[in-house]
């Protein structure tokens, strides 16, 4: 074999080697990129995926904020119905406010949660929360929402309203006023976490004997609340999960009149709240 043939042969081998090496490098890069793309919460449509792939590490500010918004929006969607979390102790509620009617009054009375601030009143509704002088503030009676507006120190707000509105002809009005409550809380303290609690069901005997206080109405209202939470980007606490039996009713022994919870069930309610918090 002459030198020329040998030289050619070596060159060919080198070329083949370089090509193979390049192919391997490209394949490894593709695998690496695929792995990173999979770790995003939401599957990215192919158009966006290709743009992410081709974008250099130093993305524009706009692209960074867009991806951050997408990321926080994804996180909110995961937490919309607050999932189970580590139990917090009662001190977590030092800077919490509870807005509600007589059922929430029961929560206050029977759980001993005297470090939280309760803005509650028998018969409170989403409209009277703005108008009825129910809360004692510096020796004067003011409405619940006026009391809330006067309090700049809370970082969590828990709301449960609706049992007294079940008989309203217009659920739209209920959601409209409820939304106003949420907006007022946001305006008072933009950083506060807002938890909208589902309406607790009633007992089977109550549900089957009342045209107003029945679980069919309660379920409808809870659906409206869920949709409102999505729109307002606030959290939905599915309290029913803690208290209802398989038939969707609370046990007969849980409430004196089928509606107002006895102490052990108020304690279960608090237990649920303590194990369903959004920490960040």
């Amino acid at each position: 074999m002459n030198n020329y043939t040998l030289k050619n042969r070596n060159q060919k081998t080198k070329i083949i080697f370089y090509v193979l090496f390049t192919i391997i490098i490209v394949m490894l890069s593709v695998l690496f990129l695929k792995k990173n793309l999979k770790s995003d919460a939401k599957p990215v449509p192919s158009k966006e995926a290709s743009s992410i792939k081709t974008t250099s590490p130093l993305t524009t500010k706009q692209e960074t904020s867009k991806s951050q918004t997408t990321s926080s929006s994804n996180n909110y969607k995961k937490m919309l119905t607050v999932p189970k979390s580590d139990e917090v102790d009662n001190s977590y509620f030092d800077d919490a406010i509870f807005i509600g009617d007589s059922r929430t009054e029961g929560l206050m009375l029977y759980t001993g949660l005297n470090n939280a601030t309760f803005y509650t009143h028998k018969g409170l509704m989403v409209n009277t929360a703005f108008t009825s002088p129910a809360i004692n503030l510096n020796g004067k009676k003011v409405s619940v929402m006026d009391a809330v507006k006067n309090n700049k120190k809370f970082s969590k707000a828990y709301i449960m309203l609706g049992i007294n509105e079940l008989g309203w002809a217009s659920p739209n009005l209920y959601i409209e006023k409820y939304s106003l409550i949420v907006d007022t809380i946001k305006a008072t303290n933009p950083n506060a976490k807002i938890y909208v609690q589902s309406l607790i069901p009633v007992t089977k005997s109550k549900s089957s004997s009342s045209k107003v206080f029945n679980n069919e109405n309660i379920n409808k209202f809870n659906n409206y609340l869920y949709d409102m939470c999505k729109e307002k980007q606030v959290y939905y606490l599915n309290i029913s999960e803690a208290l209802a039996e398989k038939n969707g009713c609370i046990p007969e022994e849980s409430a004196y009149d089928g509606i107002h919870l006895k102490k052990p069930y108020c304690e279960k309610w608090l237990e649920y709240i303590k194990t369903h918090t959004v920490q960040n």
Binding site: R103, E105, G106, Y256, H260, K262
Partner: peptide, 12 residues
């Protein structure tokens, strides 16, 4: 210096 013993109904 006030002691209290209180029993309250269910809200109904």
């Amino acid at each position: 210096k006030v002691k209290a013993t209180a029993f309250i109904g269910s809200g109904a």
